[in-house]
């Protein structure tokens, strides 16, 4: 679909990063060791960052690397190493046949949904031509560069949501400290 809009170089890299992302995701869910799984998930995140850049969302690609691959996955790895989860007894955690059957059925249902959606017709404003005209309207070299088109709606229409996000983060920090605190008998 819409191959006339994209040069070969672009589509080659798009498919390359997409294939690496899917392969890494499959390896991620099948690894037994949590550390290996986390490493494959980091690979998925990097591929997604590359795809964001290819999809003209450079700022999102940058914060994907900084926040997801940089911060969140480091927290995961930190917890894995803090809990020392490398024992062989802990490793075989794949569920039995009932879980596999459920997972297979859910996966098939979701894939069938994708197939149905793939055949559905897009409305006129969802076509690639509409996308190209919109993209031409918001060029990167316009005022504000890459971040301007994101910052304007964020600090105008969604200012309340943005401020609520800071409240959410503060609550999460306090909650994490309270839950993770080691309770000593003499503390209460």
């Amino acid at each position: 679909m819409g191959n006339e809009f994209y040069p070969l170089f672009y589509s080659f890299h798009f498919y390359l990063f997409g294939l690496i992302a899917v392969a890494s995701a499959l390896l991620f869910v099948t690894r037994k060791s949590p550390v290996a799984a986390a490493m494959w998930l980091v690979n998925v995140m990097f591929c997604l960052a590359a795809l964001y850049v290819l999809l003209d969302a450079q700022f999102i690609g940058a914060i994907q690397v900084l926040v997801y691959a940089g911060a969140i996955m480091v927290v995961f790895l930190f917890v894995v190493m803090l809990l020392n989860l490398g024992h062989p007894s802990e490793l075989s955690d794949i569920r039995g046949n009932a879980g596999r059957l459920t997972a297979g059925l859910v996966g098939l249902a979701l894939l069938a949904e994708v197939m149905v959606l793939g055949r559905a017709e897009f409305p006129a404003q969802l076509t690639m031509a509409a996308a190209e005209s919109l993209k031409a309207a918001q060029r990167i070299d316009g005022p504000g560069g890459v971040i301007g088109p994101i910052a304007a709606p964020m600090f105008k229409q969604h200012l309340l949501a943005f401020e609520l996000t800071s409240m959410l983060l503060l609550t999460a920090i306090v909650g994490a400290v309270v839950i993770g605190k080691k309770r000593t008998p003499d503390a209460r």
């Binding site: 899917v22 998925v44 794949i94 569920r95 879980g99 997972a103 859910v106 894939l111 949904e113």
Partner: peptide, 14 residues
């Protein structure tokens, strides 16, 4: 959709 499905399968099987 594919990545989401892999995530769902992971939640259900691990």
């Amino acid at each position: 959709a594919l990545l989401f499905t892999i995530g769902v399968v992971g939640v259900l099987t691990r």
